[in-house]
Design a protein around this nucleic acid. Structure first.
Length: 617
DNA sequence: TGTAGTTGTCATTGG
DNA sequence: CTCCAATGACAACTA
């Protein structure tokens, strides 16, 4: 099919519409303006052209009536949408709240982060000298719980190890442990109490342990060189690492309840290389818990752009790990529901249109910009099918056009409501074609009739001026076959046929454009929803991470306490305690505990540090 | 008067 | 090839 009006159509829309006759003339193959109609145009056509020309230049009628109604309708729409708007407000309110807390909110992601963040980190780092001693930690900004060789990716493994340790501890450690430990003479083996290998009487013969080192290539030193000189901040909460003598140790640990203490991961028979990196410095994370909490959150904030305030809020906020996007306060109602309602709205709109001419269609009913091509629905009151979906337009939706189906009882009013209805003078209206509006009465209703007439689209005016014998609705919505059949039923002039085709093309394209725009808005809303969901997921995961780190820190504290207690009770052949600067305990993979010289422990620790790095390469 | 949002329209593309 | 939907671009219009 040739688009008859193409040649005369330049760029976009209304520039041409100021002279729409040119299109018609092109369609008529009348290539002159109306003042000089082409000779090939019939007299009837020229008359029509004149009519149309006058119509098109007489488009300045006021829109006050419509606009008032339109505004009222928009208010109703806003009212209806207020719920949805509150959701947006809630979300926006969080951003405002974050701002109120001197937080910067990323304009794109909506994430918040403290404005003076680097300074806080620096101060905290200074406040934790023990942590600042570790260059790896400074570099990586990882959790202070983790040593320099630790990676966040090991966290899960650590957690699993700790859990297995806890289970093991529950089986093997009882409340009598402390009694035995405390009362045991220096010669008593600890192996039974700590499930040590019987052949490793660590408190008896150092040389024996050294001899057994050959089989401990995978053993890990629990002690790091930094431990001894560790200026532990908040050490009041920790046991003295280097007891001056056994007496003080006993007095220190005598009342220690060992029930619930944990063996380090090395005691777990499943200990492997993956647990290695963190072990050389089991005390690395033994800092004041509150301080560590803060540091941890700060690190997380730096790492993930997460606001520590948010993190702390999350800890209070979330009581359950319910997981994904159960928080409906931020997310509008599901799109699927609105999409699912589209098909029903299509059918219901056609049925309701016949019963009521009410033009006060709510926004939820609006959106019938699709069209039904079902032949069964084709009648004079055929409603344009609803668009495929009716997303929520909490902020985007300002679609001011009404559902044409609501007005379908009044022919030529399908397109009432859009802002581009060029108005005719009321006197020019051919009201004869209009069935008497049943809901309208005289007087004030005349106003409404005028208003409705004014809302007729240009194509409707043209169609009426050209005496098109059927409605624009049919022209637009009939299937091709029926449309052609309809055309064949009438003797139509070339101008009429051209106009009809243009009406059909423009009408379809208009609805397509509306659908397209709705889809676009829909996509934006979906993306926003996805962003919100992902932000929630991120917050949840971050909260879980904080919890895991806290648990890990507690575990390490307990392990360290246990280490100190065990080490402080060890005696050499002369009954004297071992010096922590010269010896260290080491957990073997088989569950045994060895007492080895510190130099060897350091070497092994370094060896273990390299392993995971090599493995990662 | 300038601007942003809305809507209709055209041109084009691809199914 | 035609029909149609989708979409970018443009212009008119409104607030």
């Amino acid at each position: 099919m040739t688009r008859l009006d193409r040649s005369s159509h330049g760029g976009g829309g209304h520039a041409k519409d100021s002279q729409p006759l040119n299109s018609l003339l092109a369609g008529h193959r009348v290539a002159q303006p109306p003042s000089a109609p082409g000779s090939r145009a019939s007299a009837q056509d020229i008359d029509l052209i004149d009519i149309l020309w006058r119509q098109d230049i007489d488009l300045g009628a006021g829109r006050e009536v419509f606009d008032y109604s339109h505004r009222q309708k928009e208010q109703d729409v806003d009212k209806n949408l207020r719920d949805g708007g509150e959701q947006e407000d809630t979300w926006a309110g969080e951003g405002a709240e974050a701002l109120a807390r001197n937080l910067l909110v990323d304009g794109e992601t909506g994430e918040s982060f403290p404005a003076q963040f680097p300074a806080e980190v620096a101060s905290i780092t200074e406040a934790v000298p023990s942590e600042s001693e570790s260059p790896a930690l400074q570099n990586s900004l990882l959790s202070p719980l983790l040593t320099g060789t630790e990676s966040p990716f090991d966290l899960e493994q650590q957690w699993q190890d700790l859990m297995s340790i806890m289970e093991m501890q529950a089986m093997e450690v009882n409340t009598s442990t402390s009694e035995v430990l405390y009362n045991a003479p220096p010669g008593d083996p600890l192996s039974t109490n700590y499930s040590l290998a019987p052949n490793t009487p660590i408190n008896q013969n150092v040389s024996l342990h050294q001899a057994s080192l050959g089989g401990c290539s995978q053993d890990f030193s629990l002690f790091s060189p930094e431990v001894e000189s560790l200026p532990v901040a908040g050490s009041s909460t920790l046991l003295p690492l280097v007891p001056s003598n056994s007496t003080s140790l006993n007095s220190t640990f005598g009342s220690t309840n060992l029930a619930g203490l944990f063996f380090p991961p090395q005691l777990n028979g499943t200990a492997n290389d993956t647990a290695g990196p963190e072990l050389p410095d089991p005390l690395g994370g033994l800092l004041d818990e509150a301080m560590l909490d803060e540091i941890s959150l700060m690190d997380l904030a730096i790492e993930e752009g997460f606001n520590p305030v948010q993190a702390s809020q999350l800890e209070e906020e979330f009581d359950s790990d319910s997981g994904l996007s159960l928080d409906s306060s931020h997310s509008p109602s599901s799109l699927s529901s609105s999409e699912g309602s589209s098909s029903s709205s299509s059918s219901s709109s056609s049925s309701s249109a016949s019963s009521s001419a009410s033009s006060s269609s709510s926004f939820s009913e609006e959106g019938a910009v699709g069209y039904s091509s079902d032949s069964e629905t084709l009648d004079l009151e055929e409603a344009e099918g609803a668009v495929g979906y009716q997303p929520e337009y909490s902020k985007f939706c300002r679609m001011s056009y009404q559902d044409p189906s609501q007005l379908s009882c009044l022919p030529y009013l399908e397109h009432v409501g859009h802002n581009h209805t060029y108005n005719m003078a009321p006197s020019a209206l051919d009201s004869a074609d209009l069935p008497p509006p049943t809901t309208l009465k005289k007087g004030s209703k005349e106003k409404q009739a005028d208003f409705l007439d004014k809302q007729m689209s240009r194509d409707e005016h043209r169609a009426r001026a050209m005496k098109i014998p059927f409605t624009n609705d049919k022209i637009i919505n009939l299937p091709v076959e029926e449309f052609n059949e309809l055309l064949s039923k009438y003797q139509l002039s070339e101008a009429q046929l051209s106009l009809i085709r243009d009406i059909r093309r423009r009408g379809k394209n208009k609805m397509a454009a509306q659908n397209c725009r709705k889809r676009k808005l829909d996509t934006i809303l979906n993306l926003e929803r996805d962003v919100e969901d992902l932000q929630r997921d991120k917050a949840r995961l971050l909260r879980e991470k904080v919890e895991f780190l806290r648990s890990l820190r507690q575990m390490k504290q307990k392990v360290q306490s246990l280490y100190q207690e065990v080490f402080g009770r060890l005696r050499d052949e002369n009954g004297r305690p071992y010096s922590p600067s010269q010896y260290a305990l080491q957990y073997a993979g088989d569950g045994s505990v060895l007492l080895i010289p510190r130099t060897m422990a350091d070497q092994q620790a370094r060896r273990q540090e390299r392993k995971p790095k090599d493995r990662r390469k």
